[in-house]
Simulated scan of single mutants.
Amino acid sequence: MYYTFNNMQAPYYYAYNRQQPMSYKSLQEALSLIKQAIEGEREDELFYDYLISVAPSQEEKDIIISIRDDERKHNRMFRSIYQSLTGQMITAPGQVEFEKPKTYIDGIRKALFGELAAVERYRDIRAGLPSRYYRDMVFEILTDELKHATKYNYILDLDTRRLIDK
């Protein structure tokens, strides 16, 4: 198989193995963002537990439980990446409080936009990681976050339908 560049043919492996440009994000930036994500774990846990406790239907509770469980998995993955790259473990802060949203739907909106903001942060983390192995782990987390945003949109749609049916 040959690769054509400037009307010259070269074996594909030559073109493929050329030096790739450095990432636009550094490993230090990625590690700092991972640390921030891990340190927010306890507050997130309290927030999800609150949403589960006030969800108006079992379907919504189950959706939020599945999201919370994914977030726990993400936290384990980020901890593993951080420890592998630094040799250090991150401990979560002890006492944490969170601000209850005014309403359940306000909480769902906050969660939706939190997921979308996480996608942007995790994209930067992915860009700064040194190997495909770690980037693939973060890609899994990124796609889960997009899935979560879609689920929150579904919950917002359920709420709209409840209002219309009244």
Results as ranks from 00 to 15, higher is better:
Ala118Gly: 12
Arg135Phe: 08
Ala149Thr: 09
Arg68Thr: 03
Glu60Asn: 09
Glu41Val: 06
Thr103Asp: 13
Tyr122Leu: 05
Asn153Asp: 11
Arg126Cys: 03
Thr150Asp: 14
Pro11Thr: 14
Asp62Met: 11
Lys151Val: 01
Val54Pro: 02
Asp106Ser: 13
Lys73Gly: 09
Leu46Ala: 06
Leu129Trp: 04
Ser53Pro: 04
Glu140Gln: 14
Asn17Phe: 11
Leu27Trp: 02
Pro56Tyr: 04
Pro56Asn: 06
Ser53Cys: 05
Phe139Met: 14
Ser80His: 14
Ala15Lys: 13
Tyr104His: 03
Pro21Gln: 11
Ala10Tyr: 15
Met89Ser: 15
Gly128Thr: 04
Asp69Met: 08
Met89Cys: 07
Pro93Leu: 11
Ala37Val: 09
Ala127Asn: 04
Gln28Lys: 13
Ile64Pro: 01
Ser84Met: 11
Met77Leu: 14
Glu140Met: 12
Asp70Pro: 03
Ala55Cys: 05
Arg135Asp: 07
Met77Phe: 10
Glu43Arg: 11
Leu129His: 01
Glu115Ser: 08
Leu31His: 08
Tyr104Gly: 00
Leu146Cys: 12
Asn75Thr: 15
Tyr12Gln: 12
Lys102Met: 11
Ser131Val: 06
Val54Ser: 00
Leu46Arg: 04
Asn17Cys: 07
Gly94Asn: 13
His148Leu: 03
Asn75Ile: 07
Leu85Gln: 07
Pro11His: 13
Gln58Leu: 13
Ala10Cys: 09
Ala111Thr: 08
Gln9Ala: 11
Tyr12Ala: 14
Tyr16Lys: 12
Asp106Thr: 14
Phe78Ser: 01
Ala55Gln: 06
Arg126Val: 05
Arg72Asp: 04
Gly40Pro: 02
Ala55Ile: 05
Ile155Gly: 00
Thr86Trp: 02
Tyr16Leu: 14
Ala118Ile: 00
Ala55Lys: 05
Val54Tyr: 05
Ser57Val: 02
Gln36Lys: 13
Pro93Tyr: 08
